[in-house]
Design a protein around this nucleic acid. Sequence first.
RNA 1: GCGGGCGUAAUUCAGUGGUAGAAUGCCAGCUUCCCAAGCUGGACGUCGGCGGUUCGAAUCCGCUCGCCCGCUCCA
Length: 511
Amino acid sequence: MAANEDNLKKIISHAKEYGYVFQSSEIYDGLSAVYDYGQMGAELKKNIKDYWWKAMVNMNENIVGIDAAIFMHPTTWKASGHVDAFSDPLIDNKDSKKRYRADVLIEEHLEKIRLKTEKDVAKGIKRFGDDFDEEQFRATNPNVLRNQTKIDDINARFKLAMDNDDLAGVKTLIEDLGIACPISGSKNWTDVKQFNLMFSTEIGAVAEAANTIYLRPETAQGIFVNYLNVQKSGRMKIPFGIAQIGKAFRNEIVARQFIFRMREFEQMEMQFFVRPGEEMKWYEHWKEQRFNWHQSLGIDEKYYRFHDHVKLAHYANAACDIEFDFPMGFKELEGIHSRTDFDLKQHEEHSGKKLQYFDPEINESYVPYVVETSVGLDRTFLAILSAAYTEEKLENDTERTVLKLPAFLAPIKVAVMPLTRKDGLPEKAREILTILKYDYNCNYDEKDSPGKRYRRQDAIGTPFCIMVDHQTLEDNTVTIRDRDTMQQERVAIDKIEAILKDKLDLRKVLN
RNA sequence: GCGGGCGUAAUUCAGUGGUAGAAUGCCAGCUUCCCAAGCUGGACGUCGGCGGUUCGAAUCCGCUCGCCCGCUCCA
């Protein structure tokens, strides 16, 4: 554990030192849980996006990509459930310092009262056996009735308080009920606070007439509200998918662990629309597909595992995560959810528009079921970066730090360097650079010894280095040095393009 | 939000009351030329920020911002 935490620190330092990730607004002391991608990070991130898009959109005939706006009609978030679900009333116990959801505390209290009734019922059964009329007992027994009244009263008070945004009322209710902290046993509570995880701003130039509008907390809704547009304009036939890469925003109470949990983050997701009843088949299909995608990055299988959700969200009938062994342990990287027809039904209801699909195969109209794959781009970035970060002991008893990034994702694909700065070698090297830079992001470096330059490229993860030496001038050959093996291979200049093309060929990874 | 740890150069750190250092890195030049060689020169820090104590603060105190860890949260 300690070694792993250490590892995260090292990765953060390395990421900063070599232009991968910077703290946002650093000169102003930073902004909590917001990060910027630097010159290397932006390239890596872009390459991850491209690779995902290629695998999901380009490789699947029945998946298309869109780019929806971050701003959406406010009703969207009522329909999706985010307005309610993303604003929990929270309360802290001052003695145990534990935080609870106020509604959960009250619900637990109600559960205790219900339990009393059940005990009474159980007693009755025990005493009277078969003669016991449970239904009548529940309807007439004074204790049971009194408890039921209590429950109804509490529910009514809670609902009233919540509907009126009366947080003080919620606190009073908790105090009146004598609810104690399960840990400390004390009733010493802070005020109830509302946390809304959605960022809001105003749309409309005139302040009085402005409407509150949210920054989307997830990208999925942009797909749902456009599903019919895409289906009709793209002549899509079920089953089909809509993919999207974009930013989402969550005002996390605690956001930490570098770029793992940020307030502004990017998701890559695909909603797959299927015929009702076939969702489990597709759920299994995408579980496998997405796992294979991660595997294709060439990171050891032991870094990944599935985690099935036991407790399902209100919209799902099956859900699992693909978890990655980050420096801080196994954490969610991607979620695969069978979302049923919940979202589309909700949007039908709130918009009053039909969101049905006519299925010519079965001659029937229906609201499709949805299987979602949603992967965090920043998390994928962190996963790849942390798996790639390697400190190696070399034979000559020195060390090197190398980013063993998948070659096709590396920010710089190839560095071209002259062995010395004399004898026309730089000119020759630049000729080669000119050939390659149309297809690949290249580096040129002539400063310092060759060994030092190799190490510099290792640190940023450049998979290939081309060295122009004196033999180049004689026979037009160069050496290509492999980042991971450190082996050099002498090849003809006119073969370089073919060799790189082969080494970076996505056909090999995308199977 | 609570608790713990921390914040000094690009990075890793030393410096505990007398106004700042090392190593690595970076830049220029010389030399060397295939895995962080050497030499010379150089740039970069209002010691996270604000305030207080003091003749004097990187150092002591308060507040604040940020990072890491635990709790909590993460439909």
